Computed example of a mutant assay.
Amino acid sequence: MRRVPGRRNYPTCCGPTEPRKNSNGRNPIQAYIWHLSAIPTEVGVTSIRREAFHDKSNNQQLRVNLDCLDEVRDRASDRIAEYQKKMTEYYNRRVRLRRLHVGDLVLRKVTTATRNSTQGKLGPTWEGPYRVTHYSRQGSYHLETLDGKALPRPWNIEHLKKYHQKV
């Protein structure tokens, strides 16, 4: 292994003998030293912001801003509430309610729990038909088979679709 003063000493078989360079062509140490030696632009050329800064008026303006903070929060919460109201109205305009009546025939979506594993992905996605026996609350239906055997739990309307018999 070669020893070079001021550099990391890696074995020549395991890595570089100096730090990697950045996109600007300097290694991290050189970039840091260059950054320290650079003269900020504010020293030579002042900006309008620095010229117009007055410590007393700045503190006074900060106090005014803190006093108005509650009003700003109230306006922001009003805008959020208005936005949410508009989004709710837009959604409710476009939603289409589906209702089933007692006695309607429906198909039930096959879930992973009820799917026959031997059929694979080419198995049916809907099973049935089933008859609606009871409507408990909005979107929740109790079903029974055509033989009259009731299913153990209610099903949501998302997992049901109306069955149309061929004539």
Rank of each mutant, 00 (worst) to 15 (best):
S117G: 01
I157R: 00
R20S: 11
Y32S: 12
N24F: 06
A81S: 12
R96M: 12
G120Q: 03
K56E: 07
H35A: 09
P19A: 11
T125F: 02
D147F: 03
R49E: 05
R94C: 14
L105N: 02
Y135E: 08
S47P: 12
Y91P: 14
K109R: 08
V64T: 05
S47D: 04
L62Y: 01
G25R: 01
I39Y: 03
K162R: 01
K109T: 11
R49S: 05
Q84S: 14
G6I: 13
G123D: 11
W126N: 13
L69R: 08
Y91A: 15
S140Q: 08
G123V: 11
M1R: 06
P11I: 03
P154K: 08
L146I: 06
R153V: 15
H54G: 11
C68H: 09
V132Q: 04
L151V: 15
A81K: 06
C13K: 04
T114S: 00
R3T: 10
A31R: 03
W155A: 09
T112C: 07
K149F: 08
G15N: 09
G6R: 13
I33G: 03
L146N: 05
T125V: 09
Y130D: 11
N92V: 06
K161H: 06
T118Q: 03
T17D: 00
L100P: 05
Q84A: 10
K149W: 02
G25H: 07
V110L: 03
Y141R: 01
T118R: 00
L100T: 05
K149N: 10
Q119R: 04
N65G: 10
W126R: 06
W34N: 06
K86N: 15
L69F: 02
R2Q: 08
C68N: 13
L160M: 00
P152Q: 06
R63W: 01
Y141A: 02
Y91R: 15
P16W: 01
R137E: 08
A52K: 14
